[in-house]
């Protein structure tokens, strides 16, 4: 089992205190700092996918600003004590974006960053989809789509029963929402008045082979969630400010869905909005071109 990297946790704590209350934070500065942290993660994601020769770079880049915002500015977690009882849960239901969550967890110090070099290599803890029990910080194994939300609902009901302050966040892909299990869970969540549960839809408009609307139409997506009894907020999934504003709004007694407008492949022009970059692996030249764009 992987263990925390305490030095890295110190670094992460320092970033967090910079970004949250203790120093009077300038909103604009917080925004740009989070985006810088996110771009650093993009470079790491690119590196480990190129090294493995496998991965889902498009979805990683569409979700990484959301993950960075949550891990560096929102979640009540302790990477040194990943099982802390009142911790918040983050479930990345679109488990194919394992590289994004692995890089984020490693940067928060859950395990040594050197471990990222083993991504998808023989005997690694870091296979192509995150597994609970293999990787600290992973609350449930994902990979088959449509599993995260029901487990999140269970965690949120338990928190109510246990009078635990836990907040549960579940990130789902938009294509993933074609799985019926999400909608069964959505009904349970409003039935149980789970105002400790937030779903973030990574609304990049693409799934594996095509756009969601060409495949199995999701729109009007906000009306769907609302009719299932959820509070719905539209946000910009590449804007920490937009995400934080929605997350920090006072809660009603409803579960909350953030529909986060995103761009698949965000940050690298030749990957953006292209279905083929769902799981295409960049060539060495493309890696260099991508690095140049991300660092420019």
């Amino acid at each position: 089992m992987l263990a925390a990297d305490t030095q890295q946790v110190q670094w992460w704590l320092a970033q967090r205190s910079l970004l949250s209350g203790s120093v009077q934070t300038d909103e604009a500065l917080r925004h740009t700092t989070l985006l810088e942290l996110s771009d650093q993660s993009r470079l790491e994601i690119l590196r480990i996918i190129a090294s493995a020769g496998l991965g889902h770079v498009g979805g990683d880049f569409s979700v990484i600003d959301i993950l960075t915002t949550l891990y560096f500015s929102v979640l009540n977690i302790d990477p040194k004590n990943p099982e802390k009882e009142d911790r918040d849960w983050l479930i990345l239901s679109k488990g194919h974006c394992a590289a994004a969550i692995y890089v984020t967890l490693a940067r928060a110090g859950y395990f040594p960053q050197a471990e990222l070099n083993t991504f998808m290599k023989p005997l690694s803890f870091l296979n192509g989809h995150p597994s609970r029990g293999k990787v600290p910080g992973v609350e449930t194994s994902t990979g088959p789509l449509g599993h995260g939300l029901p487990v999140g609902v269970g965690g949120a009901i338990a928190a109510k029963l246990q009078k635990n302050s836990r907040q549960v966040f579940v990130i789902v892909g938009d294509g993933e929402l074609q799985e019926g299990s999400n909608w069964e869970a959505a009904m349970s969540a409003s039935h149980y008045k789970l105002n400790n549960l937030t779903v973030i839809v990574d609304r990049n408009g693409l799934q594996q082979g095509d756009s969601t609307e060409n495949t199995n139409q999701l729109e009007p997506l906000d009306e769907k969630w609302a009719s299932f009894g959820w509070e719905v907020i539209h946000v910009d999934g590449h804007s920490p400010t937009s995400l934080l504003e929605a997350i920090n709004k006072p809660r009603s007694d409803k579960p909350r869905a953030l529909i986060a407008k995103t761009i698949k492949g965000k940050g690298v022009s030749f990957m953006e909005n292209k279905a083929e970059w769902h799981h295409k692996v960049p060539s060495p030249e493309q890696v260099n071109a991508a690095i140049a764009e991300i660092t420019s």
């Binding site: 294509g175 993933e176 074609q178 019926g180 799934q207 594996q208 082979g209 969601t212 495949t215 199995n216």
Partner: peptide, 28 residues
């Protein structure tokens, strides 16, 4: 959503009416 992974892109192009892609929904 498995047209590519089933190697059926050509099939879908040739026979669009004989391709029913229900999206990511296996039970359905």
């Amino acid at each position: 959503d498995s047209i590519g992974s089933s190697n059926l892109k050509e099939f879908a192009k040739l026979f669009p009416e004989q391709m029913i892609n229900v999206g990511i929904a296996e039970q359905n």
